[in-house]
Design a protein around this nucleic acid. Structure first.
Length: 884
RNA sequence: GGGCGCAUAGCUCAGUUGGUCUAGAGCGUCUGGUUUACACCCAGUAGGUCGGGGGUUCGACUCCCUCUGCGCCCACCA
């Protein structure tokens, strides 16, 4: 016998181990099966799993389990990400906390990397444990790491291929430099923050110019105005003038450029091409000089004269003071708000700099795609436009296209040590790109490493490559792919699940890289989840501990199944989810309910002397049996259909309601009168199976007690299918009778002066009717029944239930009980509605476009609706006639 | 500046090609309940002009327009 309450902590680890040891997570190797692959978005190996990860794992596990039970060859590939900048930063800070002042200098490259590897190893172990805690049915034998050797080979191969195709180039470009972390970051990693700073207006010869950054103004010798600005019409492009400036007199040149907005400030500005993207573009257009003012540590260079070597923040005030003394400060606006670029990867503020860096050219038409030469941008657009890749929800396709439109060349080099080192080697003026270092002495490798997203962007296929083959340098990448069975079998993957906040970072770049490298899409569908938020709608973060939830705490307290349910319910694709403890507790209750329902069913079996494992088929006897079995068939159909469409929340809710309200509160209650163990077991088995992808642990545990004789683990069970015969068994008339019986009993009791049998009659009305929408019964007809005859008088609830269960033969007169005027008005309204409805559907079916474009089932459904409406209308008309 | 999303009961949300939704769930409120599972339970009660306004339609929470309030993304900021 099962214990009284379900205890997740004593169950989950044991079950997970059983699954893993049995090999249930691995594809079966059956060649006839359709494959279903998901790549796990690799969590950063920088510490702990958070709720966002837990949500990823849950959704992906639901997909995987559903596919596996649905008879597919399901593979979910797990892994971790080396998270270049973030990880290096975490380790450096950790070392600093331990007392090391500047770990990079003190340790040097090799030793720091060793330290990082150590840390990553620990993190990975933690993460592996936590991914298991979530019940993830991923194939651990295929686990990969973005910094693994086989992935490194793929990264180098791809780099060299792009280099050979001139899609990768090295050049002096303006980049987002972070002086604190001493590296640049990509445009997408820049976070703009609102700041309030003083806004100074200075006299600059005959012009007035405004700035928040006087410390960049040393090199300014151009003043730019809009060509159509009438205020400055007297000056021509190229005019020069002398003026007094910070460190003495300079000669300035007038530049006319449309980038200037005449509405802002005075409509005139000076430019700093070396330290501003826009200024740099202006300078490029007119061939102007560029000078570096600030060094890579954020200090002023000799051009600043007396201010040389000062930190910019310190210099600012002093420069303003000096200009004020010279009488050049016109005014100061203290409350000016603007946005400042910061490094979202835990760094400081961004100081644009011109640097020699590696870039991927997104505009060069050098990619073979569908028989044409296209640019990386064009291919990215085509995959989604053509429908090769579908994004769910669809609205994100627009966001995706917009991002591509604004995309500039992707800067892939970083000045940190943790990452894939750029496979380019130099010797004097010679340059060599290769997966292996060149022969001979004197070569040194480019010290920079690649953007972490470079390796992630190869994730779907590089994880499927056979690692052994990557050790053989005589093979080309193409040959490696051809000889890798997993890649051949499991790529492209079916669905990529991730949160929408990394659509650009990761999803778009996987599309970019995979289409280019192997000529196929990385995945067929992208399912974008929302973010998990606190109850107040804010992002979960450790800085706000009150609303921040740790998944592991919740698992300990409520069990993994409850946590999983709480993250799947009440949200759709692309929508954020507010999560809080009460919600998780609510689903813990549900899991416990399921547990107790099973206990009850097993008790019933024991009482009836039925071995639950021996139950092979089910024969519904009473009306209630028929009703529950019939409803179960609808449930199976609805759940399967909605899961195919990724409507996880809808499915969850449907299962929840069916299990609790219908099966437990209605059918199990009735079974207390007279039970049909076969039906009880059959329905329970189906429910437990359908719930398995959502709450795998409790269902697997229950399965052990209720499974048929020859079955194995639930994880490997086939998905239920509906039985059309069972579905038809229960007709609307049958249910009408059941309701009437209850009403009859109620009236009878009233006649005999007994208390009304309130409880049961209400159960039947409110729950039963609600769940079987098509078989709804109006309460009016129940309350007005009179003059009834029935064989057995009900004295107790048990009798009511028993009468109900045996009620197939009872019929009731319904006539003479109605308020005529009300009924008439209602009938007339019904008639008008139905006539309109029929007209509407006829119009739809008469529409050629609709009939041609809609699926057959949809058209059939419309026809069905029409028929039923016509039938109803007929009844309404008859009734109207008989009344009047 | 460009784009996207949200607004439904006190709170968190379902409601997917407009039609048994004159709107549902969970939690919370209040009332009653230990009958053969479950108090992590059962039954019931109160609570909503589906953000405001207009339009299309026989019919609108659902489609269109508009206004208001929140949130997000992108671009830019001298």
């Amino acid at each position: 016998m099962l214990p009284k309450a379900y205890d997740p902590s004593g169950t989950e680890d044991r079950i997970y181990k059983m699954w893993e040891d049995s090999g249930a997570f691995k594809p079966s190797g059956d060649e006839s099966k359709e494959t279903f692959t998901i790549s796990m978005p690799p969590p950063n190996a920088t510490g702990q799993l958070h709720l966002g990860h837990a949500s990823r794992m849950t959704v992906e596990d639901v997909f995987t389990r559903f596919a596996r039970m649905g008879g597919k060859e399901a593979l979910w590939v797990p892994g971790t990400d080396h998270a270049a900048i973030a990880t290096e930063n975490v380790v450096i800070r950790k070392l600093q906390k331990e007392g090391m002042k500047s770990p990079r200098e003190e340790l040097g490259r090799e030793k720091l990397i060793e330290k990082i590897k150590e840390f990553v190893g620990e993190s990975q172990a933690t993460i592996r444990g936590q991914v298991r805690k979530m019940g993830s049915s991923c194939d651990w034998s295929r686990e990969r790491y973005t910094m693994g050797d086989s992935l490194n080979r793929c990264v180098n191969e791809v780099f060299c291929k792009m280099f050979a195709d001139d899609l990768i180039y090295r050049g002096h470009r303006i980049v987002n430099w972070d002086p604190k972390l001493q590296t640049n970051v990509s445009d997408d990693e820049v976070e703009w923050k609102d700041m309030t700073d003083p806004f100074y207006t200075f006299q600059y010869g005959p012009f007035q110019i405004a700035t928040v950054r006087p410390e960049t103004k040393f090199g300014d010798k151009y003043v730019v105005v809009h060509p159509d600005d009438k205020r400055y019409a007297e000056y021509k492009h190229g005019d020069t003038f002398d003026c007094e400036w910070i460190n003495g007199s300079i000669t300035a040149t007038v530049i006319k450029d449309e980038a200037v907005d005449p509405e802002v400030g005075t409509g005139a500005m000076t430019i700093t091409p070396w330290h501003s993207v826009v200024d740099n573009e202006i300078a490029d257009r007119h061939g102007l000089d560029k000078e570096q003012i600030i060094d890579f540590d954020g200090n002023l260079l000799p051009i600043a004269g007396e201010f040389e070597g000062m930190k910019i923040a310190n210099a600012r005030e002093k420069i303003v003071e000096k200009l004020d003394k010279k009488g050049l400060l016109v005014k100061t606006d203290e409350k000016y708000t603007h946005t400042v670029a910061t490094n979202s990867r835990g760094g400081g503020s961004i100081e644009p700099q011109i640097k020699l860096q590696w870039f991927i050219d997104v505009n060069r038409e050098a990619v073979d795609w569908k028989g044409k030469k296209m640019s990386l941008k064009q291919v990215m657009q085509d995959t989604v436009k053509s429908g090769d890749i579908k994004i769910i929800p669809e609205r994100f396709e627009k966001v995706y296209f917009h991002w591509i439109d604004n995309l500039r060349d992707w800067c892939i080099s970083r000045q940190i040590w943790w990452g894939h080192q750029i496979p380019v080697y130099y010797k004097g003026a010679e340059e060599f790109a290769g997966v292996k270092p060149p022969e001979g002495d004197g070569w040194s490798q480019d010290p920079d490493t690649l953007d972490t997203w470079f390796s992630s962007s190869l994730w779907t296929w590089s994880t499927l490559v056979d690692p052994k083959l990557t050790e053989d340098f005589s093979l080309t990448l193409k040959e490696i792919l051809e000889k890798s069975p997993d890649y051949q079998k499991f790529h492209p993957t079916q669905v990529l699940e991730t949160a929408y906040d990394i659509l650009f970072f990761w999803v778009a770049r996987m599309i970019l890289m995979t289409t280019y490298v192997i000529g196929e899409v990385p995945f067929e569908k992208v399912y974008l989840s929302g973010l998990i938020r606190q109850r107040d709608g804010k992002k979960m973060s450790k800085s706000n501990p009150e609303g921040c939830i740790d998944p592991i705490d919740m698992i300990e307290k409520y069990g993994t199944d409850a946590l999983r349910l709480s993250m799947v319910m009440g949200t759709g694709a692309g929508n954020d989810l507010k999560l809080y403890e009460e919600k998780i507790a609510g689903y813990r209750n549900f899991v416990n309910k399921l547990w107790n329902a099973s206990r009850f069913v097993l008790m019933q079996c024991e009482e009836a002397g039925v071995d639950p494992h021996a139950v092979a088929s089910c024969t519904p006897k009473s009306l209630a049996d028929k009703a529950v079995v019939s409803a179960l068939q609808d449930l199976v159909d609805d759940v399967s259909e909605s899961l195919e469409k990724y409507r996880l929340s809808e499915v969850g809710e449907r299962l929840y309601t069916f299990t609790w309200d219908y099966y437990c509160d209605w059918y199990l209650e009735l079974s207390k009168g007279e039970a049909n163990p076969e039906v009880l077991i059959h329905v329970l088995r189906t429910i437990v199976t359908l719930l398995h992808p959502y709450c795998p642990f409790v269902t697997e545990e229950l399965w052990e007690s209720i499974k048929p004789k020859d079955s194995g683990m639930l994880i490997s069970e086939p998905w239920p299918e509906s039985d059309a015969k069972l579905k038809d068994q229960s007709s609307q008339d049958d249910l009408q009778i059941t309701i009437d019986v209850i009403s009859a009993i109620r009236s009878l009791r009233a006649d005999q002066g007994l208390e009304p049998a309130k409880k049961v009659s209400i159960i039947v009305y409110s729950k039963h009717a609600k769940l079987l929408e098509s078989q709804r019964v109006h309460i009016e007809s129940m309350t007005r029944l009179e003059n009834l005859t029935i064989d057995s008088a009900a004295q107790k609830h048990e009798d009511v239930a028993s009468a109900f269960l045996n009620a197939a033969e009872v019929h009731m007169p319904l006539e003479g009980l109605i308020d005529k005027d009300k009924e008439l008005a209602k009938l007339q309204k019904d008639r008008d509605q139905l006539e309109g409805f029929i007209k509407g559907i006829n119009a739809k079916l008469g529409n050629k476009k609709f009939v041609e474009n809609a699926k057959e089932e949809v058209v059939a459904l419309e026809r069905e609706k029409l028929e039923s409406a016509e039938g109803k209308l007929k009844k309404v008309l008859e009734r109207l006639e008989s009344l009047s």
